[in-house]
Every structure is written in structure tokens, then in C-alpha cells.
């Protein structure tokens, strides 16, 4: 068992009377690539957003290297710098070019120099195949290009874990491939990744572990082989039967 980076214990979250997460236990180990699958409203995105406190959990705790991230002395900003996030809607800073998007966090949060930040930013923009577009503003890029810049922005902070919140759900089908290809490379490079996704092919072929959520709880968590070929729980079987009516496309 690899060293645990983030551990979630008895996590619950309610919006008013609506209980979105109920007593969730979950952890991510170093180098693991984990996908969270499940139907809309099952709480997968909320779980991810609770992990870097974009949502405040109503119960339970999140531990980062065994330290509670809501402790008074805990440096939440450095934690967030080390736990990157890629959003469904990309959320590139609209007032900045692709390069500036990847530079601003390094300079303001990690206090790197501009020269160093730009060098690192260019390296990662190159890695995601966006080096030609460093001077473009987000409004001048396509969805797939924006998401690749967003991934470079997260990588430029040298994160220990990268959280992906449905990174391909807002993309046209023809652009899904280019983003998944980048993510596949990242997984191969040993980066720890937690991916909320509807891309069953990615979950099956790239991930070490697949977590199935339903109704705010983790129903089943296992290797892709077990989840996709012999799921134990009827709800998992039902969900997979629904989404796998067509064979998953390999990535």
C-alpha cells in the first residue's frame, strides 16, 4: 500500500436539508490514479470540492499527510497549491493570456521569480501541446485548448495530487480525445490523480482504482477489472449497464 496523501474520514455535506454526502471514507495513495464514477447528483463532484475546501464539509474530516486541513494552524493556501484542480468549465482567468494563466499562481503563491515562472509555464504548455498559443487569451481558444491550458496551469504549481472535476464533460466530442490523451500521459508519468469522470474508457484503461458513488455514499471501490467485469453491488451493475450500452472507447 503506497503512502496515503489525502484521507477523507466520515465526510458529510448538506446543502440545507439536502444531504449530498453521507459518511464517506476514502483515501488516495501516492502515485495512484483513481476515478470516481456515478450518475449525476451522486455527490462525486462535491466530494472532490470538499477535498480542497471549495465546499465546506458539514461533518467529518479531510487529512493531508495525517494533518486535518481545517486545523487552525494549517496553511490552506499552500495546501491548495499542492493539490491542483482542473474544472469542468476550465475557469481560465479571462483577463490573462495562456502564459499569464500559468505564471500568476507560481509568482503570487509560490513566490517564484517571473523568469523562473515563465520557464516552468512554457515547459508545461509545451507538454500539453499548447506552446504555440501562449499569447492567446482564453476567448480565442477552443474548449479542448482551454482545458489543456488549465491542466498546464495546475501542473505549473508542481502539485502532489491533481483533482479533475469532469474535465471533458463540457467539451465537444471531437475535443475529448485531445484532453484525455494529455491526462493519460500524466497518469503514465506517475502523477497522483483523482478524476471525476463520465468517460468509462478512461476509468477502465488508465486508472488503478475505480470508485462508484451513488446517493452520497461510496457503494463500491475496486480495480477497474473487478468494477467493469464483476461488480459486487447491484447498483454498480445497474449503473454500468446503463452507461455501457455502447462499448467504451479505448483511449
Amino acid at each position: 500500500m503506497p503512502e496515503t496523501i489525502i484521507e477523507v474520514r466520515h465526510l458529510s455535506k448538506s446543502f440545507g436539508d439536502h444531504e449530498v454526502l453521507r459518511d464517506v471514507d476514502f483515501s488516495v495513495g501516492k502515485g495512484e490514479v483513481v476515478s470516481i464514477i456515478g450518475s449525476s447528483g451522486s455527490g462525486k463532484s462535491t466530494l472532490l470540492r470538499c477535498m480542497n475546501l471549495l465546499e465546506k464539509p458539514t461533518g467529518g474530516e479531510v487529512l493531508y499527510h495525517r494533518r486535518n486541513i481545517r486545523d487552525a494552524g494549517f496553511d490552506l493556501h499552500m495546501y491548495r497549491a499542492h493539490v491542483g484542480m482542473v474544472f469542468q468549465q476550465f475557469n481560465l482567468f479571462n483577463n490573462m493570456t495562456a502564459l499569464e494563466n500559468c505564471v500568476v499562481g507560481q509568482m503570487k503563491v509560490l513566490k517564484r521569480s517571473r523568469a523562473e515562472s515563465e520557464k516552468i509555464a512554457l515547459d508545461y504548455l509545451c507538454k500539453v501541446g499548447m506552446d504555440l498559443y501562449v499569447h492567446a487569451k482564453p476567448r480565442q481558444l477552443s474548449g479542448g485548448q482551454k482545458q489543456r491550458v488549465a491542466i498546464a496551469r495546475a501542473l505549473a504549481m508542481n502539485p502532489e495530487v491533481l483533482l479533475f472535476d469532469e474535465p471533458t464533460s463540457a467539451l465537444d466530442p471531437e475535443m475529448v480525445g485531445e484532453v484525455l490523451a494529455v491526462m493519460k500521459d500524466l497518469a503514465a508519468s506517475g502523477l497522483t490523480m483523482l478524476v471525476v469522470t463520465h468517460e468509462m474508457g478512461f476509468a477502465r484503461d488508465v486508472c488503478d482504482r475505480v470508485v462508484f458513488m451513488d446517493g452520497g455514499v461510496i457503494v463500491e471501490s475496486d480495480t477497474p477489472e473487478v468494477i467493469f467485469t464483476q461488480p459486487k453491488h447491484p447498483r454498480t451493475r445497474e449503473f454500468l449497464a446503463r452507461v455501457l450500452q455502447s462499448e467504451p472507447q479505448p483511449v
Binding site: L54, H77, R80, F93, A150, R153
Partner: peptide, 14 residues
């Protein structure tokens, strides 16, 4: 868009 601020917070900005 609130997503702009979320993204800024998510990379560690205050």
C-alpha cells in the same frame, strides 16, 4: 463568473 475566483483560490491564492 464565480468559477474565476474558485480557480484562483484552488491554486492557493488568498
Amino acid at each position: 463568473d464565480p468559477g474565476q475566483q474558485e480557480a484562483a483560490l484552488a491554486i492557493g491564492m488568498t
